[in-house]
Design a protein around this nucleic acid. Structure first.
Lengths: 331, 331
DNA sequence: AAAGCTTCTGTGAACGTGCACAGTAATCTT
DNA sequence: AAGATTACTGTGCACGTTCACAGAAGCTTT
């Protein structure tokens, strides 16, 4: 049994294709009589427009592609993705756009994404956790509009984005430690080729100035294991530290394990602060004091930017959203 | 500047559209000379096939839709989704299929999904965490093939699926408790309208038989908060329990908090076992003894089933994969 | 009464592809 | 040598939609 076409609807309603098409596309010139006849015909026949046929003539696809740039192994360790996906689906659905997911973990993936996008298969591109200098950025320069959730600045390409104010968040946590009277405050950063890695360290340094010496800083790669490693390293290097700001909750969970292994009490001996306010912050012991990123708003703003560009805006400004200190038991 | 079409490629290679089309679609009748000429023309022009045009004639869309049936709030609390999404993207990409994401949290969403699928916009449907009796199941009966990750049995509709052997997993944990010499073993189940909720309780009862009394069983809804609540309830009801099997790690994390609040030591006073082996199992204190589900294989098998059906198989058998006991510090 | 709007409708072409079919040349079989 | 098979190529049509255009009918203005 064939699917009904616009012809069938037109025949059932006693009008022509054109009129049905006008109704479907919100054109104003449709008489009330035709309108009700067509609407009845649509529901009777169970007609659904054929997107392929529409695409062919409109040169639009009705879909947006979300590109996840994380290497495969650690994909989705981060709960940000979940929020992003959920918000994207919702906001796109309102505009009758669908969300296509692609990976860009290795070179072959990236090539596939470029082919897909340049092939005109998407009306917009949603970048997530793209690293600075990712070759994808240049490749995507021409083509449909692209935005990023989280800051991203390529070589020459600047992509509009919505992000949390990482630097502010780091300042908030560091100032909180200072206010608690902690004297030797260390930090575990993220990778220094990510905005979060760089800017959270900047905020830390903003507050501590010259006191933020190299001995107090260790680097991780966002994973729990790397947090544990970095904490062990810091304890060896600076045994008398009394606070540590960890650039992500997951790494902070690792740091807590290392502190426990070393026999330090948290927060009595060492205050620990995380970043993200991810679910894991609640299941550590003690629960983590952390910096909340407005994940949902970041996702919403990112989509707002993209939709504006799709609608033809020729320029949009990046959006930077404030973070918030969440005090729990670890500091 | 217009995108090159198959005409342009044909002209550049000095052959006809038909020959280019044959090469593109893997038809064997293409001469070596034509082959190289066309391949060069393709890379020179940067040609990418127009999927909309192809869809129009083949009646295939080149995409598979993944339907997430979780209510919005708690969407993605569960790390299963991440694995599923990642595996799906990978395996579909190999076949040049793309992954479209949709939500089916409320009635409006569900209607949208049905319209989308019945409208012929997907070659296959990937159901995730669909509840028994979901109206979506009946609506999807006709149309492209659908499979589920995790068991799902509707009223009349039976959908092929790949799932972990929940019942076996529950038996493994319960037997482990018995082997440890625990005498009063309680359980916190998941919602009783989900396969995981039902089957994990069945496995528990398989081992304990008549000893699995109502007093030893409490129900949660997979959330951490519900685990805490259920544990508190159990402690009031049966203060002398010495072990508890919790049907998910996240709920187990909640249970641990309740036990700590009640002053019980884990595992000395009460042994705790989780289910899932999710990341949270590592960040609890003590780390959780749990049941590992072969998430990646489940996802792979689910996709294998779907691809087989898309390729025309008229029947596939469900796949049930064994679970594994992972011993850590909580029991 | 003619001309000009406004509101609405139908029609033909075009979008880019795959497929059935017809056709050609070369090779193999009898 | 004639026919049959194999290997390859080109052409016309169909897929279902939107859009530009032409035109009809009713109303208002000149």
């Amino acid at each position: 049994m064939k699917r009904p076409t616009i012809h069938d609807v037109a025949a059932a309603a006693g009008v022509s294709r054109g009129t049905v098409s006008r109704l479907l596309n919100g054109d104003k010139y449709v008489s009330p009589a035709a309108r009700v006849a067509i609407e009845r015909a649509i529901s009777e026949t169970g007609y659904v427009v054929n997107r392929a046929a529409r695409s062919l003539v409109t040169q639009r696809t009705g879909s947006v592609v979300m590109v996840l740039s994380e290497p495969h192994e650690k994909l989705f360790e981060d709960p940000n993705y979940s929020t992003m996906i959920r918000v994207a689906i919702r906001m796109l659905a309102e505009r009758d756009l669908s969300l296509v997911m692609m990976l860009a973990g290795d070179e072959a993936d990236r090539e596939r994404v470029v082919r897909y996008v340049r092939g005109g298969h998407a009306d917009g591109v949603l970048l997530v956790s793209t690293h600075a200098g990712d070759p994808l950025l240049d490749a995507l320069r021409s083509g449909p509009p692209a935005v990023s959730c989280g800051a991203v600045i390529g070589r020459e390409t600047v992509i509009p984005y919505a992000a949390a104010d990482d630097r502010l968040g780091a300042r908030q946590m560091t100032e909180y430690f200072v206010g608690l009277g902690r004297r030797r405050i260390a930090m575990i950063t993220g990778p220094m080729d990510t905005p979060g890695g760089i800017q959270r360290l900047e905020g830390f340094a903003d507050v501590l100035g010259r006191k933020a010496t190299k001995r107090l800083i260790a680097h991780g790669d966002w994973t729990q294991a790397s947090g544990e490693r970095a904490m062990t390293e810091l304890l060896e290097r600076t045994p008398d530290l009394d606070a540590v700001f960890v650039a992500s909750d997951l790494m902070a969970a690792g740091a807590l394990a290392a502190l426990r292994a070393a026999g330090r009490r948290v927060p009595d001996d060492v205050a620990v602060g995380g970043f993200d306010d991810s679910p894991v912050a609640l299941s550590t012991h003690p629960p983590l004091t952390t910096i909340r990123q407005p994940l949902a708003e970041m996702a919403q703003e990112t989509l707002r930017l993209l939709l504006a560009l799709i609608d033809g805006a020729d320029h949009v400004d990046p959006v930077i959203l404030p973070t918030e200190l969440v005090i729990r038991a670890s500091a």
